[in-house]
């Protein structure tokens, strides 16, 4: 994966950084609004909160960490980590929720 020398030291310009920061602040407020509305959202509440967190995370990764301007390999490497985390959760959860229910010890 050859990168021309011009790309290697890509500078994320100030307006982009500023807009990202403002978006992040805004989304944090949105998270709180979703939280206060959780009685209306019901079980969707946590999902919404995490979706918003996911968007925030993506913004931090793309612009603050510069992944948007970085090589495909670095993006792939980072994404791989999340995938395997999902795997650990998925199969552990599969086990626990397919067990024959027994009253817990408490």
């Amino acid at each position: 994966m050859a990168q021309s020398n011009n790309d290697v030291h890509h500078i994320v310009e100030f307006p982009i950084l500023m807009k990202t920061a403002l978006a992040l602040f805004g989304l944090t407020f949105l998270t709180m609004i979703a939280f206060w509305a959780h009685s209306y959202l019901g079980p969707l509440g946590p999902i919404v909160a995490f979706l918003i967190a996911g968007v925030k995370a993506a913004l931090v990764m793309m612009y603050f960490m510069g992944l948007k301007y970085d090589s495909l390999m670095n993006r792939f490497i980072f994404a791989l980590g999340f995938f395997f985390l999902l795997l650990l959760f998925a199969i552990s959860a599969l086990d626990i929720w397919t067990r024959v229910p027994v009253a817990n010890t408490l």
Binding site: F84, L87, I91, L94, D95, I96, T98, R99, V100
Partner: peptide
């Protein structure tokens, strides 16, 4: 290799499905 770890746990109390 990441998908198979439960074969160490067949009789541990893990669910049959798993």
């Amino acid at each position: 290799s990441f998908f198979v770890w439960g074969h160490h746990m067949y009789v541990s109390g893990q669910s049959e499905t798993a």
